[in-house]
């Protein structure tokens, strides 16, 4: 079966800086894969290329969600990529601050709904049913992520950890086949990180969503991921199981060369 996400020689340059350098990368369906590397290694840029925020300078990105045959998605707009089954969270939280928690998830469900201008104005039964359903579905997602007590709060009023979880809830609203998490544990305390750990595994097992995560918290990475890719200065320097990565001399060097290793 084709991998759910595959990049071939993916390169992204900003002027003279090569932020992503010739990366060959693969996530198989049902896997939890981690992408790690020192600060500024190009991890977020990699995400941005895959999700359509940036158009890569060269190389190919293929996705094959839900057992379809692989399709090339270079240069597609982010909303089209999301429609195809990739959803993401942001490293620097980007919630819709002045919308309620429920509405944030409802936006995630946008692509699953149909009603347009006339539906909004005349409110035929189809639209009303659809609205009723999206409210319920969004509420269910919030419940799954333990956010139901905040339903009607504005997103900006949530505690930090809850905002991070809401980012995940919103992305799950799009019913992705692959969920890309950019440092989901950043700023969380150990207790919250542990809960997040369980949550991610549950999302994979129960919702059948493959997961690709960027993370600096090594305990989280080592405990949940089946495969790890390591980048440094935009280049892929290692890939393998957590145990292999722990022993890889290149990885140790990259991290020890970095101050916050």
């Amino acid at each position: 079966m084709a991998p759910i996400l595959e990049t071939k020689n993916l390169t992204m340059q900003f002027g003279g800086l090569t932020a992503v350098d010739n990366i060959n990368f693969k996530v198989n369906s049902g896997e939890i894969v981690a992408l790690i590397g020192p600060n500024g290694a190009g991890k977020t840029t990699f995400f941005n290329c895959v999700t359509g925020v940036y158009t890569p300078t060269s190389g190919d990105i293929f996705i094959a969600p839900n057992k379809t045959s692989p399709q090339r998605i270079n240069g597609l707009k982010p909303n089209k990529v999301t429609e195809k089954g990739l959803a993401r969270t942001f490293q620097n939280i980007r919630l819709f601050q002045n919308m309620t928690v429920l509405e944030n998830v409802m936006i995630g469900r946008h692509i699953k709904l149909k009603s347009g201008l006339l539906g909004a104005i005349f409110r035929p039964k189809a639209t009303m049913d659809e609205e009723q359903k999206v409210i319920q579905d969004s509420y269910d997602i919030l419940t799954e992520l333990g956010l139901e007590q905040y339903v009607n709060e504005l997103a900006k009023n949530l505690p930090y950890g809850a905002q991070r979880r809401l980012e995940i809830a919103r992305a799950m609203g799009t019913e992705p086949a692959l969920l890309l998490l950019d440092e989901p544990a950043a700023g969380m305390n150990p207790q919250e990180t542990k809960e997040l750990d369980e949550m991610i595994v549950k999302i994979r097992d129960v919702n059948k969503i493959s997961i690709l995560l960027i993370e600096h918290d090594m305990s989280l990475v080592m405990s949940i991921s089946e495969k790890i890719f390591v980048v440094d200065y935009g280049k892929l320097i290692a890939e393998g199981s957590p145990d292999e990565i722990k022993q890889n001399p290149d990885v140790i060097k990259a991290y020890l060369g970095d101050e916050d290793a």
Binding site: Q97, G108, I111
Partner: peptide, 14 residues
């Protein structure tokens, strides 16, 4: 409203 709040995020949500 989502577009008003954050263009990039709303685009990434489809």
């Amino acid at each position: 409203i989502a577009m008003r709040e954050d263009e990039i995020a709303s685009e990434s949500m489809g």
